[in-house]
Write a protein that binds this DNA or RNA. Structure first.
Lengths: 189, 189
DNA sequence: GATAAATTTTGATCTATATCAAATTATTTA
DNA sequence: TAAATAATTTGATATAGATCAAAATTTATC
């Protein structure tokens, strides 16, 4: 799969041929239909997913309410987030929003690959750096931006989101009531 | 020097002797007095700091207002955050809150060490993982916790903070008005 | 130790967004 | 295509926390 190597090189950093082939041998490439679940709350076996194609959402349940934690699109890595790092049972459900093609690697395989291949460890570091930048952006915009600005910046970043995710999910991701988002949309016409 | 190796091993992961000695040769250990600045807005030469002793705050200016972005204590790494990763000029001032002993490494040295020593790259990955967990916690508590709960959880995590940081700084870090924090304290008596 | 400066507290008012409830509109299903 | 279900919009009301202003307290300076 030269395709994956290229995507990784373009969006993260380049890997040695050996690393790539080793990674792929120890992973699975799976096709999912829209609406299928990649991961469920409570799972102890964490995976690292690489989205070759399609888009997904990750959510958890808080007080019986579904809370969208993040969206991910083509060329993004995704995991069960926090719990992947802390090794606790996953809090998240991860569900496709479209038909997807996904490369899946078990967490312990990831760790082995990191130990064995310095460049793979580097890839992970680059990936984590990107996650931090995103989180930071979220913290800052929560603090200084109005709900409307945050919505607009989300749509600007992921124009596709309005087509793939229902209004309630977008509101939940932004941490606002869906009625509020609906009013924002109305005011934008 | 062995002291640092131990602190790193205890809080992050253990490093080879060679890596440690290489790291230290290429870094500086500096004593700062309370109130001194480690880094200034606009700097293009980023550094990675390791807090051997003491505590610091990082802030930036937004609309003429000082916004505390994070606090760091003994055994924490700190950088000019976002801009360290994106390579943009720093947005932050980093200032000591007490007398400090700090290990400073230039960013390009860090990158060289990462290339040369696989275990150093691993250390950085572990550090970044911790940053992500913290950011995530901030995003989630912003979404679901009252201001009072967030304040209490901060104090619980860093009991020292009430002694080292003024009320206005703590409020700013929590993203609330200082009057609000003052009222919370009053209600807690 | 008196004066000035900085920090914290208290009070009054305002506002963005939440919440609750109901009405529309869009999407599935049979 | 009608009926059922789900998603979105609209309206009315409530509230946490912001903002503005001033008083009180603490800390620094001469």
């Amino acid at each position: 799969m030269n395709e994956i190597a290229d995507k990784i090189a373009l969006n993260y950093c380049s890997l040695n041929k050996l690393t790539i082939s080793n990674w792929e041998t120890k992973s699975k490439i799976i096709e999912y239909k829209k609406g299928e679940q990649l991961a469920k709350e409570g799972q102890r076996r964490h995976k690292l997913f690489f989205l070759i194609k399609g888009s997904v959402k990750a959510y958890y349940i808080n007080n019986d309410k579904k809370i969208i934690d993040y969206f991910a699109f083509e060329n993004d890595f995704i995991t069960s987030s926090s719990s992947y790092l802390t090794n606790e049972p996953s809090l998240h459900f991860i569900q496709t929003m479209e038909d997807c093609l996904i490369l899946e690697t078990e967490k312990n395989t990831v760790e082995l690959l990191c130990e064995k291949h310095h460049d793979f460890e580097h890839l992970l570091r680059v990936f984590l750096s990107k996650v931090i930048i995103q989180y930071r952006h979220r913290v800052v915009s929560h603090q200084f931006k109005t709900v409307k600005q945050r919505y607009e910046s989300l749509v600007k970043q992921y124009p596709k989101i309005e087509l793939t995710a229902p209004l309630g999910d977008i509101a939940s991701f932004l941490g606002i009531a869906q009625e509020t988002l609906s009013r924002i949309r109305a005011s934008n016409k």
